[in-house]
Design a protein around this nucleic acid. Sequence first.
DNA 1: TACTCTCGATAGAACGTTCAGTCAAGAGGT
DNA 2: ACCTCTTGACTGAACGTTCTATCGAGAGTA
Lengths: 204, 204
Amino acid sequence: MAEVSDRRAQILQAAFEEFSAKGFKGATIKSIARTASLQSPALIYWYFPDKEALFREVLESRIPVLRAVRDPASLLDLPPEEVLPNIARRYLSTFDSRATQRMARLLIGEAMRRPEVAEVFGNAVIKKVLGFLKSYMARQVELGRLKEHDVRASARAFIGMLLPQAGGKMFFAAIREDGLTDEEHIETVVGIFLQGLEGKEDEG
Amino acid sequence: MAEVSDRRAQILQAAFEEFSAKGFKGATIKSIARTASLQSPALIYWYFPDKEALFREVLESRIPVLRAVRDPASLLDLPPEEVLPNIARRYLSTFDSRATQRMARLLIGEAMRRPEVAEVFGNAVIKKVLGFLKSYMARQVELGRLKEHDVRASARAFIGMLLPQAGGKMFFAAIREDGLTDEEHIETVVGIFLQGLEGKEDEG
DNA sequence: TACTCTCGATAGAACGTTCAGTCAAGAGGT
DNA sequence: ACCTCTTGACTGAACGTTCTATCGAGAGTA
């Protein structure tokens, strides 16, 4: 039997590298074959019906990796001083990996032009993350640890506060320039967020 | 005299539409010519040396529009309860325009693969917005309206809190689903932000 | 032999770009 | 008024290249 299609994995890996660097249109069957050290681009058509299918399989093979918030229930009752910095730290450190950066580039880049990709990304990642944060915020309000507020907005706000820092790591050197570290950023924004949502003592 | 190159503007307009819809690689000289109602793609080469130059001119012709924060000095001393909602409102309403959405799509999409575009975008837009917010926060701390904190982080945080909402308007239906309006979002996040940064009364 | 996998060659289409040439409008001389 | 020459705007055809995808032949193993 040997391994189940050594070649297949090799082509998928190469296709991922090419697509993420150049986009769907920019990457060519030939360049993917070259990256995969194939002697002929024709071999790709033995394993995949066409370029489109290869692209889809690349996405599908990598998206499971992005299961960031996998175990929501166990976190729901923990206090925000503990949970939020953890999520933030995990979230930002995600983008330290070269492979994840490439994946993000690929997804975002293609999502701009291909609505289907945007939808997959939106449902697979964003919806889950925001959904978890909303339930978490709601639960914390219920427990009296946070004041009453619109959790749809606070969930957006929390994840959003981290985005410019993530963007700096991935694409925009201009953001990186002031040298703010992840830890410093997390400390400040979690501080703002928690003080901003703690029970009001002076108003009815 | 007549108008200064009617055709040129016509081609630039068409190129903008095509590039923003399909990206640099996806848009073709022929499709741009068709969109511009030219009888021959060759005419494009009378006004622009090559596709690359046409793309650059499209970017340059549209980026001036993005001068969002143009008059920083006059705002510096106004109180955050007034300034921040204004900035937020202006920022989010920017993405109501179809043209701006297309421009953002174009810029972000290309920035993923072309470092030069990312740099232009980073310096022209992000750096200015963040730069303004940093000076503004610093000034407000100086005036005693906000507590001492790392303004690099709070500037990121403020603009970041708005990003998911903007993303929802532009690409991700999944974010839009919960029906949170811009006004609701702004009210909540500005509230969190201001309470999160208001002078501490119980600590040294 | 039969089946799986690999490759070189290449078809066919689309790409960016070039080029020779058309056409209307205007300048200049007569 | 008439002819000539020039010029800017534009076009259709074609160039060379590159793209995706196909095909038939051959190698390797059972």
